[in-house]
Computed example of a mutant assay.
Amino acid sequence: MAGILYLCATPIGNLKDMTPRVRETLEMADLIAAEDTRNSIKLLNHFGIQTPMTSYHEYNKVEKAYDLINKLQAGKNIALITDAGTPAISDPGEVLVKMCQEAGITVTSLPGPAACITALTLSGLSTRRFCFEGFLPFDDKKEKKAVLEELKEESRTIILYEAPHHLIRTLECLYEELGNRRITLCRELTKKFETVMPTTLEDALHYYESEAPRGEYVLVLEGKSRAEKQQEKEEIFSRMSIEEHMKSYEDQGIDRKEAMKLVAKDRGISKRDVYQYFIKNVERSS
Rank of each mutant, 00 (worst) to 15 (best):
E133D: 10
K192S: 07
K141V: 10
P164Y: 05
G104W: 14
G179A: 14
F138L: 06
K152E: 12
C131A: 14
E150G: 09
I117N: 03
G112T: 11
K191Q: 11
K141G: 02
S109I: 14
A114V: 13
Y217L: 08
L122F: 06
V107Q: 09
E222N: 02
G112M: 10
A212N: 14
S123V: 04
R181M: 10
P164C: 03
R129Y: 09
E102S: 15
E172R: 14
E222V: 05
L125Q: 05
G215A: 08
C131K: 13
C186K: 03
A212R: 15
L148F: 06
I183K: 02
A146I: 02
F135G: 08
E153I: 06
C173P: 07
T127Y: 00
E222L: 08
T190D: 09
K142W: 00
T157L: 09
Y175C: 09
T157G: 08
L205D: 12
L122C: 13
P198R: 07
C173N: 11
D139Y: 11
R182W: 06
A114D: 05
T157C: 07
L174I: 13
T200E: 05
Y208R: 00
T118P: 01
A103M: 11
S126T: 06
G223P: 04
L151G: 06
L174C: 11
L136E: 04
F193S: 12
E102K: 15
K144C: 05
I117M: 13
C116G: 12
A103I: 12
L221C: 11
T118M: 05
P111I: 12
G223T: 06
E176Y: 09
A114P: 01
E194V: 01
A163L: 04
S126D: 15
L185Q: 04
L167G: 04
M197P: 00
Y217E: 00
P164D: 03
Y161F: 15
V107A: 10
E216T: 11
T106R: 13
P213Q: 08
A115Y: 02
R182K: 15
Y217T: 02
T157K: 00
E188V: 09
L174E: 09
P198F: 07
Y175A: 14
T190W: 04
L136D: 03
P137Y: 07
E153R: 14
G124V: 12
V147F: 01
V107E: 09
P164T: 04
P113Y: 01
Y208N: 05
L136C: 07
R169L: 11
K191V: 09
K224E: 14
M197K: 08
